[in-house]
């Protein structure tokens, strides 16, 4: 029994060594900061290990882990959303010491916009544009309908189009509403 356990643990360690970097990257894009991303990956791996004896012989280990990653993030959001503030999300602000090229500025503007998107919209964008998943696969991973995937993506893209539509807005030089006299 212990040999079986040991073998399973070794397989799990190999899986973690091979895939943890990718899971971290996805988790970072989902959460917007490293500390939360690391917590999310650790929780995901713990849950994956709990199911390891059942999924280790299947072809869908990574799909299983991904689904846990995205769903755990969603459930954390439900619990924690009221404590998240924009200032806590923007951990990775533009580095002013380096060349502030237009490319970097636009990319940072995009990232700032993604960081404040509702979690489901952000998950759809990450799955579609980072992991290159189809809408059907996204629907399966997130447990939502394909129509919802499309509407969430449309809403997120519309917001980005509006915010990044002009160089000024892309660079964050937004017009401030005037103050009361």
């Amino acid at each position: 029994m212990s040999e079986v356990k040991s073998s399973q643990d070794e397989e799990f360690r190999e899986y973690v060594a091979a895939r943890s970097a990718a899971l971290h990257r996805a988790a970072y894009l989902l959460t917007g900061n490293w500390a939360t991303a690391e917590d999310l990956v650790q929780t995901t791996l713990t849950k994956t290990y709990l199911a390891w004896s059942r999924i280790r012989t299947t072809d869908s280990i990574d799909a299983y882990a991904r689904r846990i990653l995205y769903n755990t993030n969603a459930s954390w959001w439900r619990k924690r959303s009221n404590r998240e503030k924009p200032t806590e999300v923007f951990e990775d602000r533009a580095d002013l010491s380096r060349d502030f090229t237009e490319h970097a500025a636009v990319r940072d503007a995009m990232w700032r916009h993604i960081a404040v998107l509702p979690k489901r919209q952000r998950a759809v964008l990450v799955l579609r544009y980072y992991e290159n998943r189809s809408d059907a696969q996204i629907a399966e991973i997130l447990g939502i309908s394909i129509g919802t995937v499309k509407s969430q993506a449309s809403r997120a893209l519309a917001g980005m189009r509006k915010r990044l539509g002009t160089p000024a807005s892309a660079l964050g030089v937004a017009m401030e509403p005037r103050e009361a006299a």
């Binding site: 643990d9 943890s20 894009l29 490293w34």
Partner: peptide
């Protein structure tokens, strides 16, 4: 922009991701 920007952002991976303790902590 999303495809390139997300990929670029994701590549800013922390140095700790290959920490061998990660699996043992999960176990």
């Amino acid at each position: 922009l999303l495809r390139s920007g997300l990929a670029e952002q994701a590549e800013r991976a922390p140095a700790t991701v290959d920490d061998p303790a990660l699996a043992d902590l999960a176990i």
